[in-house]
């Protein structure tokens, strides 16, 4: 049992660390803002989830009881990550941030900025 919990916690910690690192690599590497937005919202959130679950398991195991308050941060992050991503996307649309050449449907960015239906919908 002892070994089993240690194994699970170690695996979760490594997975969390790798995903958090991946999120930041994507942030540095991607060519335009909208592509950069993808990795921090997903990979980092998943990595944080893994680290927090590992933290919860280890604290519960060490104290011999149930330690569930790390779950609060996890849920909070999973709720706020999409919201802040959407606010950042709105800001980028408003500031007309450069979109990578060769992106498809670049004209949609303009209609999205004004919150209108797409032009082909008429």
């Amino acid at each position: 049992m002892d070994f089993f919990i240690e194994l699970v916690v170690s695996a979760l910690l490594l997975m969390g660390g790798i995903f958090v690192l991946l999120g930041s690599i994507g942030l540095l590497k991607m060519p335009d803002f909208y592509m950069r937005l993808h990795t921090p919202t997903k990979a980092t959130t998943l990595g944080m989830g893994a680290i927090l679950v590992a933290c919860m398991l280890l604290t519960s195991y060490r104290s011999g009881g149930v330690s569930a308050h790390e779950l609060l941060i996890t849920i909070f992050l999973f709720i706020t990550a999409p919201v802040s991503a959407m606010m950042l996307a709105k800001t980028a649309l408003h500031l007309k941030v450069k979109i990578k050449k060769g992106s498809r449907n670049r004209d949609l960015a303009e209609t999205a900025k004004h919150r209108e239906p797409p032009s082909h919908a008429e």
Partner: peptide
């Protein structure tokens, strides 16, 4: 937004 590949804007 949370499922990979897409972000709602």
């Amino acid at each position: 937004s949370l499922t990979p590949g897409t972000v709602s804007a």
